[in-house]
């Protein structure tokens, strides 16, 4: 398991797929998840295979998660905050699923 070498940052907590994750202020979501031993954060939109943070600097888009209902957020670029509801991004996102009546508007 990963360890922290110092005690910097106030303790905060968010949930990932319903499970409470302890973090420190200043962590990115991806850092907090990795520190908690969670390194699968999405499933590929192509094959469905498990993926997780790779570059940690906003380049690779492997760590995409859903944050408070908003999909396609880069977990390595979003700062962890108390009370966030984060979930695995499972494959491709239906662009209209979270917009009331969006699909009907197209029809």
């Amino acid at each position: 398991m990963p360890t922290r070498i110092d005690a910097a940052g106030e303790p905060i907590a968010f949930t990932f797929d319903g499970v409470r994750v302890e973090a420190r202020a200043g962590d990115s979501l991806a850092a907090a998840l990795l520190a908690a031993g969670i390194d699968t954060t999405r499933r590929s939109a192509v094959s469905g295979m498990a993926r997780g943070p790779y570059c940690m600097m906003g380049t690779c888009f492997e760590c995409l998660v859903v944050v408070d209902g908003v999909p396609n957020r880069q977990a390595c670029m979003v700062e962890a905050a108390d009370g966030l509801v984060v979930t695995t991004q499972d494959g491709a996102v239906d662009a209209f699923a979270h917009e009331d009546g969006g699909r009907e508007m197209l029809a």
Binding site: R4, G26, A31, L34
Partner: peptide
């Protein structure tokens, strides 16, 4: 980056 920003290391 994990080490610099969060002091996280994985032995």
């Amino acid at each position: 980056i994990l080490l610099k920003t969060s002091g996280i290391v994985e032995p």
